[in-house]
Amino acid sequence: MSTQTATQAKGAAPPGQFRRLPMHWLGVVPFAAFVLLFLILPTMKIVIGAFQTPDGGFTLANVSGLFTSSILAAYWISIKISFTSAILGCLIGFAMAAAVVLGGLPRAIRGPLLTFSGVASNFAGVPLAFAFLATLGPVGLVTVFLRSELGIDLRLLGFNILSFWGLTITYLFFQIPLMILIITPALDGLKREWREAASILGATNAQYWRLVAFPILLPSLLGTLALLFANAFGAVATAIALTGSSLNIVPILLFAQIRGDVLGDPHLGYALAFGMIVVTGIANAIYIWLRARSERWLK
């Protein structure tokens, strides 16, 4: 606040000097140009391309081309995996962060846990898939252990690493730490006095959580949920390295499409990518809407 007024005052101050406001804007031109060229325009290109015929005319054919059962199924399973891994990531990450912040565990655990979360949330992509193949794959550590030592055959139980649950479990490896990283500061922000004020006013622990702590955390929780969803929805590398192309999810479909392996219709590619933007866009719109509702009490 104070810097803002100071700056404005300064902008107007020196007598005899022009007030060259546009000069101020020159400072952000490089950044604006970069963002425009390498973030906004490429995205716009996809959006527009989704509604264009090869020679530039308007069409809805590309988008309506998405409505085939196999593509719809791909979207559906992508959304399911992303949503499930986001929800589970939120719940488990929350439980772990709460255990450390509020559960009375030694403070010494925090630093290492946060560092580890930083590492694990960045340990995504191809190597992560390898790690899970080596663990839960057909000859993985846990699979073999369960089969030879306990006589439990994961395959017979219907578990397969190249499946919905396999991918979800793998994604949790970066989803949970991301949640921990984001929610720990939020949990730290819960003041001890709020809990004490609630309890001296007669509230039980559950009432405190339902009426005070949860509503205060809700904006962060929703934001993280939206972020985790987008994070899983756009994850290409892990999925490809884990399943090859055996699992029919959108990012793999789009990847193959761009590579020219499968569909061969470039404008269907636009539509596929556009669909991804729409899905993450809707997820974030829901988030923004819920946040606005849950955050009336914030500035």
């Binding site: 003041k191 006095e193 004490e196 004020a197 005070v212």
Partner: peptide, 10 residues
């Protein structure tokens, strides 16, 4: 309490 400790969400 010294720092008011009002519930910010209410």
């Amino acid at each position: 309490f010294q720092a008011y400790a009002l519930f910010p969400n209410m």
